[in-house]
Amino acid sequence: MLLVALLVLGGLGFWMQQKAEKKRVDEELAQAQGIVRVLSATFSNKAALKVGEVKGTLDVTTVDNGALPILRSSQKATIPYSVGYTLDLSGLGADDYRWDQQNRILTIRVPIVTPEAPNVDEANRSVAGTSGVFVTRNASVNLQRRASQLATAKAGEVAAEPANLARAQANAEKVVAGLARAPLDAAGLGPLTVRVVTPASGTPSTERWDVSRSIEQVLAERQQAR
């Protein structure tokens, strides 16, 4: 009888342990699903989230050859410009989130930032000088138009410089982490760390990004294994 009682107690203890473990995994899965729902709702309308800007002035020199050599003219101008950087978060899905329940770290994978079309401030253009024997009205219009085109092209090149893109990416990490934390705190998920991964920041050397499984899939597999 004692042996039977011990076996029954052992079986009951094992059953209760399994039940508790299943409950814990269910809670983890529910929390992961809750995180995905909250963040999906937060980011769904963020198709053009502004995460940075580069601006300054550009000195450009333009030339209008005219119909005759005597009509050749040139102009030097300084033109202010600005280029914004945007991040499209509307396409984020469950595969872009990783939830480390043990360490309570949420990792969000976001796309690279995209420079917007350069904005050239024609109203604040300053002309350093115009040269030419005869500067016709048509030549003046051409010089101004070419200066604008040249400044726009140069502004695009500045925005595409690696250092400027890196700064925009770094700022994107801060912006996304801030956007994510607010609704997660409001949802009562407790203390957690939000880490944003971009192509610029990469992942820690000890971690390989697993693109095959989302947080929901990982927990679902663990649940099925029980």
Rank of each mutant, 00 (worst) to 15 (best):
M1W: 08
L7N: 05
M16D: 00
A20I: 13
A20G: 10
K22W: 06
Q33I: 12
A47D: 15
L49S: 14
V60D: 03
T61F: 14
A67M: 05
P69Y: 04
Q75D: 10
Q75I: 05
A77S: 09
A77T: 11
I79E: 09
P80C: 12
S82W: 05
L87F: 10
D88R: 06
L92N: 13
G93K: 13
A94Q: 15
D100G: 00
V110G: 02
V113D: 06
P115E: 07
P118G: 08
V120Q: 11
D121N: 12
A123Q: 14
A128R: 11
T130Q: 06
T130K: 14
G132P: 01
V135C: 01
V135A: 08
A147N: 10
Q149N: 01
L150K: 13
K154E: 11
A155V: 01
A159Q: 10
A160L: 06
E161H: 09
E161S: 01
L165V: 03
L165M: 03
R167C: 01
K174C: 04
V176K: 13
R181Y: 11
P183Y: 08
P183V: 02
L184A: 07
T198Y: 05
P199G: 03
P204A: 06
R208N: 12
S212Y: 10
L219C: 04
A220K: 07
E221V: 05
Q223A: 03
A225R: 12
R226P: 04
